[in-house]
């Protein structure tokens, strides 16, 4: 079966020095991005507490930043972005559904519990 996309990391051949430089540059760029995201998360967590009015915004920011960070690790470090399209879909679609389900059920249950507590 022919490759249907660009496989930078395939075993088909060894990398040239130029390809190696390109890959390394990409890795360092992602590392810098992950470091910045971590710093933003820590700053938000350290300075804004649950009693603050901004707390709901912080919670959503954490959700988005964490999924973004995970996405970069999976697509770049685990090089799923360079794999075959079908493999990418088989892995990403169930995970995306699972994450969406978890967020949905958490919000749904939390609202139900909130209603129950309010009724007391």
């Amino acid at each position: 079966m022919e490759r249907d996309d660009l496989i930078e990391y395939s075993l088909d051949g060894h990398h040239s020095e130029e390809e190696g430089k390109k890959i390394r540059k990409k890795i360092w760029k992602v590392t810098l991005l992950l470091t910045i995201i971590t710093a933003v998360e820590v700053a938000l967590g350290a300075y804004i507490k649950q009693s603050n009015d901004l707390w709901p915004f912080v919670k959503w920011t954490f959700l988005v930043l964490t999924v973004l960070k995970a996405g970069y690790i999976v697509m770049i470090f685990m090089h799923l972005g360079d794999e075959r399209k079908w493999l990418r879909n088989v892995i990403l679609i169930p995970y995306a559904l699972f994450i969406i389900y978890l967020i949905f059920i958490a919000l749904w249950e939390a609202l139900a519990v909130n209603d129950a507590w309010s009724g007391l």
Binding site: H15, E17, G20, W28, T35, T38
Partner: peptide, 23 residues
Amino acid sequence: TFNTMVLITSSVTMVMSWASLKL
């Protein structure tokens, strides 16, 4: 936070070790 940075660094060095083999 320190451990987060340690693990991110380890991921970078892991992928660099593999890239080194390819080179």
